[in-house]
Design a protein around this nucleic acid. Structure first.
Lengths: 222, 222
DNA sequence: TGTACATCAGTGAACGCGCGTTCACTGATGTAC
DNA sequence: TGTACATCAGTGAACGCGCGTTCACTGATGTAC
């Protein structure tokens, strides 16, 4: 969470900011974002409410930080798996594990949007990092000579133009993404409750079926 | 929303309850469930706060009603489509249309769970109605009665016994469900933002690929 | 049909709570000569 | 090295707000004879 800082006051500031975030996360883990309260966090830390305004300009900035950290964590996890040479099925399992390890962190990103909140560009950029890895994992050498990896990390507006949706790779990446979210969102929301099957196996099958290369003929309409 | 009632007072009660719910929905449509406030609703209706306690025992009962009505609406929509003889792809489009017509109603059911809320049995029953239609739509007479997918439904309780579907059918129904939710949840949360493609087409492809009968060969690893 | 009674919708005041946020202030910590 | 000054963390009081919920009460509506 922190970077190394020189001056002791800055160092201290960073420590306190981190501690605030940790308490924020444990509060979110209890009852979601909506119940997040600066005063409650301050009380947990043995401080008075207004003290936190030394570290965050308000509730909104804290929430933005949390969302950014959540994206950052997922992006790092995904990238690490990719650089270790993962398959699509294994990557899905990694993401699922990440989501299960802290459901509310996942829901903060992919659950019901926080009312009135709009993601700044920095967060969109991190989101694109994740998508870029999905594209790499779903890439098939026979699809296209060029990997669109770099394009994604640039301006997101060039997405549509630089990457025709008819590309089988893009199609697979989108399917990977949506199938993953489908299983995860239902699982985490408890909708599989009494059904007694392993969502991990279902997810593995969903992603495995994806890789079987059928999608190429279906892209005509996109 | 109402049933026909005899006595005028009961009739009036039902009318007011409906009006409260309508205001509740429009409030939810604005900023989600978390901001739902009995006092605010009463003010919109030109009444004082405590008056609503004649109609709902409290905020929780109102929310439960809303969730139940949302499930009921979806179940009716799905069943109507089924009885009119729909295909899986068309049914997915119907459900998507239902979700887009009132995103917060969809999110109330399938979004981030309301903290501390647990669904009563009545709601679980409606949810099962929906799943039953999915199973019917995904049913294929040529399915063999047993496949390795049974493993997925291992400790299953009412599911497999109550529903006369063969295992590949159940598998397809689960895939239908998760793929649908994957596309819808990402679309409604705005995660497809600047990508410039039609989520409706992606959904149609996801469901069409489902129907192509590939799933049988993939269950071997279970 | 009118009258007496019971039922119930809605009010206004009140309770206790927690929230985000501002403000003037105290005391400790780091900095410069 | 010590001293003077500036910086900044944290406090406590206060503001205004809205929430859910209870309570005793008024006035209208329906019911029974």
């Amino acid at each position: 969470m922190t970077e190394s800082v020189r001056k002791p006051r800055e160092r201290y500031r960073a420590q306190v900011r981190d501690e605030v975030k940790r308490h924020a996360w444990s509060q979110i883990a209890g009852a979601g974002v909506t119940t997040l309260s600066l005063n409650a966090i301050a009380k947990e830390m043995g401080m008075s409410g207004p003290a936190l305004y030394r570290y965050f300009s308000g509730r909104d900035e804290l929430i933005t930080e949390l969302i950014r950290d959540a994206y950052r964590s997922l992006a790092d996890t995904v990238r690490a798996a990719f650089e270790a040479g993962t398959t699509a099925v294994a990557l899905a399992a990694v993401i699922r594990k990440w989501a299960l390890s802290d459901p509310h962190r996942y829901l903060l990103i992919y659950g019901t949007p926080v009312p009135g909140y709009h993601a700044p560009d920095e967060i969109t950029a991190i989101s694109n990092e994740i998508l870029a890895v999905l594209l790499e994992v779903c890439a098939d050498p026979s699809d296209q000579p060029k990997t669109p990896f770099d394009v994604l990390l640039g301006t997101n507006r060039e997405w549509a133009s630089a990457l025709p949706a008819s590309s089988p790779t893009v199609h697979r990446a989108l399917s990977f993404w949506t199938r993953l979210q489908g299983v995860l969102s239902l699982e985490l929301a408890g909708h599989f409750g009494p059904m007694g099957f392993d969502p991990g196996l279902l997810l593995a099958e969903e992603v495995a079926e994806l890789s079987s290369g059928l999608s190429s003929g279906l892209s005509s309409g996109l």
